[in-house]
Amino acid sequence: MSTAALSPRATTAVLRAEARLFRREPATLFWVVLFPTLLLGILGAIPSFREANDDLDGLRTIDVYVPVVVLLALIMAGIQGMPAVVAGYREHGVLRRMSTTPIPPSALLGAQMGLHGAAALGSALFSLAAGRLVFDVALPRQAFGYGLALLLSVAAALALGTLATALARTTKAANAIGTSVTFPMMFCAGLWLPVQAMPDVLARIVELTPFGAASLALGQAAGGDWPGWSHLGVLTLWTVVLTAASVRWFRWE
């Protein structure tokens, strides 16, 4: 039987195996799926966050933070979760052994990207539902634009995570890179201060980062406007550049 004929079946087998392992990682499931919604609940418990804010064009702070916690799930999945797993496989020779079988190592990377991306999307839906049911946050009024911005945000997060995976040769290095990137990306997403409330100069700088652009695009779509093409363009550009860099530097061994 040819390698070409084996590849789809082998890829499916890898995906099933990785899904079983993924479900057995409670820490990953907590930080990706549950933590963003728990954080939303903590923020929503602050009385002032449930009141209209003139600095946010009359929106409540909790309204603005729903897109932020959606992005937090993407950061935890793409930058913190996936690189450590793949780097661990490289460190322990799993990828090297796979290269001697009909199963391409790329099947494992694709499975990891798919699983972490799906978990991030599930967390996003969970956060949107919690915001609506618990704090009466309106669902995105521009649903199609919100979905497009969310998918581009996921792609950018996974591309950034793949680059971290390419640069890290060990799990320890992956964790160090992930941590050093996570906190700046959280700031750009608006976790400590919503992008809409940042000083003009800082906001313009943050808009050029993937998660700053994502935060604004999701916020615009949530309010009923089509996401700014400049923000979608920034997300697309970052995805392309990060993916190209990952392909250039990624090594299976």
Rank of each mutant, 00 (worst) to 15 (best):
Met1Pro: 11
Ser2Lys: 11
Thr3Ala: 14
Leu6Pro: 00
Thr11Trp: 04
Thr11Asp: 06
Thr12Ile: 11
Ala13Leu: 13
Ala13Lys: 11
Leu15Glu: 00
Arg20Trp: 15
Phe22Ala: 15
Arg24Thr: 10
Arg24Leu: 14
Glu25His: 12
Glu25Trp: 09
Pro26Met: 08
Pro26Cys: 06
Ala27Tyr: 06
Ala27Val: 14
Thr28Gln: 12
Leu29Ser: 01
Leu29Glu: 00
Leu34Val: 12
Leu38Ala: 05
Ile42Trp: 12
Ile42Ala: 14
Ala45Ile: 04
Ala45Lys: 05
Ile46Tyr: 08
Pro47Asp: 00
Ser48Gly: 03
Glu51Phe: 02
Asn53Lys: 14
Asn53His: 11
Asp55Cys: 00
Asp55Gln: 13
Gly58Pro: 01
Thr61Cys: 08
Asp63Gly: 02
Asp63Ala: 05
Asp63Thr: 07
Val64Met: 09
Val64Gln: 08
Val66Tyr: 01
Val70Pro: 01
Leu72Val: 08
Leu74Asp: 01
Ala77Cys: 13
Gly78Trp: 02
Gly78Met: 08
Gly81Tyr: 13
Met82Gln: 15
Pro83Phe: 06
Ala84Trp: 07
Ala84Val: 15
Val85Tyr: 13
Gly88Tyr: 01
Glu91Lys: 09
Glu91Asp: 02
Gly93Ile: 13
Leu95Val: 11
Met98Arg: 09
Met98Asp: 00
Ser99Lys: 09
Pro102Val: 09
Ile103Ala: 15
Pro104Val: 08
Pro105Cys: 10
Ala107Gln: 02
Leu108Arg: 12
Gly110Ser: 07
Ala111Asp: 04
Met113Gln: 12
Leu115Cys: 12
Ala119Cys: 12
Leu121Trp: 04
Leu121Ile: 14
Leu125Ala: 14
Leu125Pro: 00
Phe126Val: 13
Ser127Lys: 01
Gly131Asn: 03
Leu133Gly: 02
Phe135Lys: 08
Phe135Asn: 04
Val137Phe: 04
Val137Lys: 07
Ala138Ile: 02
Pro140Glu: 06
Ala143Trp: 10
Gly145Glu: 05
Leu148Gln: 11
Leu148Ser: 09
Leu151Asn: 08
Leu152Thr: 04
Ala157Gly: 03
Leu158Phe: 10
Ala159Asn: 11
Leu160Arg: 09
Gly161Arg: 10
Thr165Cys: 08
Thr165Asn: 03
Leu167Val: 05
Thr170Leu: 05
Ala174Val: 03
Gly178Thr: 01
Thr179Lys: 12
Ser180Leu: 15
Thr182Arg: 13
Pro184His: 12
Met185Arg: 09
Met186Arg: 10
Cys188Pro: 01
Ala189Thr: 06
Gly190Ala: 06
Leu191Trp: 07
Leu193Phe: 02
Pro194Tyr: 02
Pro194Glu: 04
Gln196Leu: 15
Gln196Pro: 05
Gln196Glu: 15
Met198Asp: 00
Met198Leu: 15
Ala203Gly: 13
Glu207Cys: 11
Pro210Cys: 11
Phe211Glu: 04
Gly212Tyr: 05
Ala213Val: 07
Ala213Asp: 04
Leu218Met: 07
Leu218Arg: 09
Gly219Ser: 09
Gly219Cys: 00
Gln220Ile: 05
Gln220Leu: 10
Ala222Ser: 10
Gly223His: 06
Ser230Met: 13
His231Ile: 07
Gly233Arg: 10
Gly233Tyr: 04
Val234Met: 03
Thr239Gln: 13
Val241Asp: 08
Leu242Lys: 10
Ala244Gly: 09
Ala244Phe: 04
Ala245Trp: 06
Val247Asn: 02
Arg248Asp: 02
Phe250Asn: 00
Glu253Gly: 14
